[in-house]
Design a protein around this nucleic acid. Structure first.
Lengths: 226, 226
DNA sequence: ACAAAAGTGTTCGTCTTACACCCATGC
DNA sequence: GCATGGGTGTAAGACGAACACTTTTGT
């Protein structure tokens, strides 16, 4: 059997979060050619010695960057071409791209380790200089996230354990980038059995009617899909 | 910079077609371990020397199997794990999986070339012995195809150039596996501007009213997405 | 009493479904 | 004439958007 040369394989991750009421994506500034000085999705090399499978590789890479294992990793697509990465044979580079959505403030960046510039960037104020085809990948990740939220499919770990319906609505509106109707939002949640009130608990203390505390029903949370 | 060992990279393709009024998928019988004797999706090794990018690799592999370049190749997902393929370091195998839908009778198998058993299998009569996680991949490919057709998104090259609305409906019903309402089907096609009648052409000769001949409008065909 | 947010009901228009009905042809 | 598939209209129901409305608290 002949032996074949293989491409240089990486995993990239589009991590999104709400920062200052807006959907942001985590980007890194490249310090090496190609695209030196451009912004790119954080990622890392697939390590056949460390990673039992692709999902584990994504978890490891994300943990190196974020300090936490991201709660809802899901695969978006794979890109690969000759000339994409100088470290591969014939420049052949292959990247499996994942996305994740984390709660505001959950990430504790682990700087050092050649992560000099890791930055949250609002998705509607992206820089113009974006490396590779990552601009398109970011757009696709944002679209998928918005589509999930619009369908009331809330990724694991993005929504807090306990919340009021008002908080859930504000969160959804911030992800979607527009307001939504309160009555319709609540009716859909109720009719589809997506949330359940926590018996006897409510949030008081503000100058208005107290709100009930809810949690997601397990059937409503989107599975991990790594 | 350290050099890393890379996984063994392949491309697999779930080719679907209507055979004898039913949706079928093309499978191959494995002649080597692992999963010797099991059925699997046809595929091939990613060749960094031959393939300019991932899409081109998929086209090449499909052409080797089918004799034609498949008209509507689209990426589904990528799977990868240690122990998946003995040819990789630590058995690490990575497969980028595509799907395609071809018109009945379009494929001209190119046997020989270690393709001893290549066979169309109805998707609701799959064999029990399916290699790797290919059973799940096949199910996913079928779901995506049905979802496309249900949304009246007809992949390029699957639908004939010229057709009657009755033919298009029968084709859709065979893919979906259930009948659909004629009036609704036609109204949706009309309202969304998906098809256009070819001026002055009609199909006569049968013992009933002749039917108009239609073609897809370009805006209606699903782009290639490799 | 009043402001503010929680929570609900009701109307309206749009889209889908199911079904009934005509039309044109070959036999 | 009649069987057959092509082609269209229509009423019933499902669903979502928009808006008005009531409820309950702290001040």
């Amino acid at each position: 059997m002949p032996t074949y040369l293989m491409p240089f394989c990486r995993v990239e991750i589009a991590v999104q979060s709400l920062i200052d009421q807006r959907l942001n994506v985590l980007l890194i500034r490249r310090e090496e050619a190609p695209y030196k000085g451009f912004w790119a999705l954080p990622g890392g090399v697939l390590r056949v010695d460390l990673d039992p499978d692709l999902g584990a590789a994504a978890v490891r890479v994300a943990k190196e960057r974020l300090g936490i294992p991201p709660p809802n990793l899901c695969q978006m697509k794979t890109v690969g071409a000759k000339g994409r990465d100088p470290r591969g044979e014939a420049g052949w580079g292959l990247s499996v791209v994942y996305r994740a959505l984390i709660a505001e403030g959950a990430a504790t960046f682990a700087p050092g380790k050649r992560v000099t510039e890791l930055r949250w960037v609002p998705v509607d104020e992206l820089p113009t200089k974006i490396a590779f085809d990552h601009a398109e990948l970011i757009a696709q990740a944002v679209n998928q996230t918005r589509s999930d939220i619009a369908k009331l499919s809330f990724p694991t770990g993005f929504v807090p354990e306990r919340f009021t319906l008002g908080e859930l609505q504000v969160l959804s509106e911030q992800v979607l980038g527009h307001t939504i109707d309160k009555a319709s939002f609540r009716r859909k949640l109720r009719d589809r059995g997506l949330v359940e009130a926590i018996e006897g608990e409510q949030l008081r203390g503000s100058a208005h009617r107290p709100s009930a505390i809810f949690r997601l029903r397990r059937s409503a949370v989107q599975p991990n899909g790594i």
